[in-house]
Design a binder for these strands. Structure first.
Length: 673
RNA sequence: GGCGAGAUAGCUCAGUUGGCUAGAGCACACGGUUCAUACCCGUGGUGUCGAGGGUUCGAAUCCCCCUCUCGCUACCA
């Protein structure tokens, strides 16, 4: 049965470094949906890939002393290995450095330019270099960059812009008439209220500040900026052609049925991307699902802590299907999920080893013990008057497909898996209800015993068949052990729809011989042992990363790179006056989540300074600190209060702040030069 | 600050249009069983359903207010 095409994509991964397990989660989620849809009768096309341009990569490559292309070839290779090691069944792995992609992006840019949707920026004088952003007059705050507050300056560089506002009304209309478009729906309100309803700003779509990107072919000092380059992978990967010669594959697959992305890039996928498509006169994707994050429960991952978990680590510890099970099971629909070693061991032991593994094992053992491995469907029910336990088991196994399928339609993958485990638990309960070991003692009950074991094998077969999209290797292993082919979803669907319990309860080939020596599917793990191994692994990794860090008490921060600014002259530097300030008083600014208001003694004067550091320092602990102050900054009103300078902080990649303080005692007012 | 979501058992959460002794999974305790990977099955909760008020015969479920948490956004000189 063919239910039509299903085109699913993941976001393409940015190739600035090797992704950890939190970043690898998305591909597994997409894979489970793709596999389910395939088995469910859809003609599935599943695309993933890498996003390989941009300044950050240019810089990383420079540091390493290789070309950007060499750099991204390396990382893209690693990412692809991760996808493969997680046993994901993508049909296409696109790279934004692929020739066909680059060519089409240039054509698309040109097409939109010719159409008038992209225009050359005329915003001279309103460019903020550090932010790499152009602003309109009306956007400026006190004549300065609304993002960073710094001076905007006459732009020597021109830039191309996309007329977002032109399509805004159409997009609002589309979102309102297609409630399924943005998932989860709570995200829809965020997009509407924060961006669409207040009015969309035009988007800058080119850069001249770096070279590593796709050049604008008719103006080659410009490079096409990320979103027009990256988002278009969804159409170029399947053969879109801006000149109207798109391939048959494109005509068949587009529009995409599902873009699976992280919640951080929902805005780009539900606003910019649909608008680009409107401009190209192409239909919009049917659904965009911004999934939550999978976080590491025991502290933030960082290379310096040596606790970054990669997919391959987990696979080594637990095996690929267990890893797939963890990430899919721990991820609720709307809230972030948490992954810890404790939780993984718990799931491993409780669900995989006990419920599933042991069920298969005990069933096969009994089949061997009582029937030499050959179990026939004798169809002998319980004695008269007894409760019909078989009927209940059959009912559950007949309905499981429908339950799972319903959850999958809603993209509730974790819940879908839970439904399958309900069936396995029902099977375990059935063993206790029927007590095969008791039946075995009575020769007259032989056929009843065969029936019981047959029902179990049949239940395992149905559950395993449904499990295949999530745990493909395990499904095949179990099928091998019970010596049966996995059942097609078509059959399960039919049984569920027609309530054909007779058929559903007789799917296992009667009289097949199960394996004589069942292999343990999932070995129980001891948490302490696992933790020992984990710590050994991290220690080793830390040692390998550099012995330098050993001696210092405080774990040093990992190095981070930031966007380089233009070189300044000494005169420029000399304009800044830095002094040591002593914080005399500090109060929280009411109605602000980030601001603290400090009274800072600098020499003999006291300045009031507001700083966005409430989340890192309490007002009490600020008092008495000697800090570095930029004194001669133009005073400005923030949140209704005057701020007469700036407290300087260091900021790491996660946005943690640390105040700069003199390393020896210094008087308030001491010049920093 | 704006918009939105949420606060239910030790943990993660279900609780439909208000209705009988508020549920599931995990963890924990006890009991049973022995086919099995010390497994499986059963039993066990004095939970102020965040605080307070209101509507109602009756509210976890509706209304008001308060506190706290979270998401997006703004402010982060």
């Amino acid at each position: 049965m063919n239910k039509g095409k299903y085109y699913i994509t993941t976001a393409i991964a940015y190739t600035s470094g090797k992704p950890h397990i939190g970043n690898s989660y998305e591909i597994v989620l997409a894979d489970s949906i793709a596999r389910f849809k395939r088995k469910d009768g859809y003609d599935v096309f599943f695309q993933t890939g890498t996003d390989e341009h941009g300044q950050k990569i240019e810089l990383k490559a420079q540091e390493t002393g290789i070309t950007p292309k060499e750099f991204v070839d390396g990382v893209a290779g690693q990412i692809r290995e991760i996808c493969d090691s997680l046993n994901t069944s993508y049909d296409k792995f696109i790279r934004t450095t692929d020739d066909f992609h680059e060519k089409q992006v240039q054509k698309i840019f040109k097409k939109l330019y010719d159409k008038g949707d992209i225009y050359k920026g005329a915003y001279e004088g309103l460019y903020c270099t550090p932010c790499e952003s152009f602003w309109t007059e009306s956007q400026l705050v006190d004549g300065k960059c609304p993002d960073c507050g710094r001076e905007v300056k006459p732009a020597k560089e021109e830039a191309y812009f996309f007329k977002m506002s032109k399509y805004a009304d159409r997009l609002i209309e589309h979102i309102n008439t297609h409630p399924e478009f943005i998932q989860p729906v709570s995200r829809k309100n965020e997009m509407m209220n924060n961006f669409l309803l207040p009015g969309l700003q035009d988007l800058c779509v080119s850069r001249t500040s770096f070279k590593w990107g796709i050049p604008v072919d008719f103006d080659d000092k410009h490079v096409i900026y990320v979103w027009l380059d990256a988002l278009t992978n969804y159409i170029t990967g399947i053969g879109y052609d801006a000149d109207g010669n798109s391939t048959d594959q494109y005509k068949k697959l587009w529009p995409a049925d599902l873009h699976l992305i992280g919640k951080d890039i929902i805005r780009f996928h539900t606003i910019y991307w649909p608008i680009f498509l409107m401009a190209l006169d192409e239909p919009l994707p049917k659904q965009v699902f911004g999934h939550p994050w999978l976080l590491q429960g025991d502290g933030k991952m960082s290379k310096s802590k040596g606790n970054v978990i990669y997919a391959e680590d987990l696979i080594q510890f637990f095996g690929v299907d267990a890893v797939r099970y963890f990430v899919l099971h721990e991820m609720p629909f709307e809230n972030d999920g948490v992954i810890t070693w404790d939780l993984m061991v718990e799931r491993m032991n409780s669900d995989l080893a006990n419920t599933l593994g042991n069920l298969v094992n005990r069933t096969i053992s009994m089949s061997n013990k009582y029937f030499g491995g050959v179990v026939e469907n004798k169809r002998v029910g319980v004695a008269d008057g007894a409760e019909d336990v078989d009927a209940d088991l059959w009912k559950v196994l007949t309905d499981t497909y429908a339950r799972v399928s319903k959850k999958m339609d809603d993209l509730r993958v974790a819940d879908a898996i839970t439904e399958i485990f309900v069936l396995f638990k029902r099977c375990n309960k059935y063993i206790d209800e029927t007590m095969p070991w008791a039946l075995a003692k009575d020769e007259a009950q032989k056929d009843r015993l065969a029936t019981v074991l047959y029902n179990l094998l049949n239940g395992i077969l149905v559950g395993t068949s449904l499990l295949e999209p999530y745990m493909p290797e395990t499904a095949v292993k179990i099928a091998g052990q019970i010596n049966a082919q996995l059942v097609d979803f078509e059959v399960l669907e039919e049984c569920a729809e027609n309530q054909d319990i007779a058929k559903a309860s007789a799917l296992y080939p009667s009289g097949n011989k199960v394996t004589e020596a069942p292999e343990i599917l999932f070995a129980r793990q001891d948490l302490n042992e696992v933790m020992e191994k984990v710590e050994a692994m991290f220690a080793e990794r830390k040692a390998a990363a550099g012995i330098v860090e050993e001696e210092k008490e405080e774990v040093p921060e990992d190095v981070i790179d930031i966007e380089p600014k233009d070189v300044i002259s000494y005169d420029d530097f000399d304009k800044c006056q830095f002094q040591v300030g002593e914080i005399l008083e500090c109060k929280e600014v009411p109605k602000s989540k980030k601001l603290l208001c400090s009274q800072v003694r600098v020499g003999s004067s006291v300045k009031q300074i507001l700083s966005g550091i409430k989340q890192h320092y309490s007002a009490e602990e600020m008092v008495g600190k000697k800090v570095m102050v930029l004194v001669n900054l133009q005073p400005r009103e923030i949140a209704g209060m005057m701020s007469e300078g700036m407290l300087l902080c260091a900021e790491d990649a996660e946005g943690n702040l640390a105040l700069m303080t003199p390393e020896k005692a210094m008087p308030a007012g001491a010049e920093i030069c």
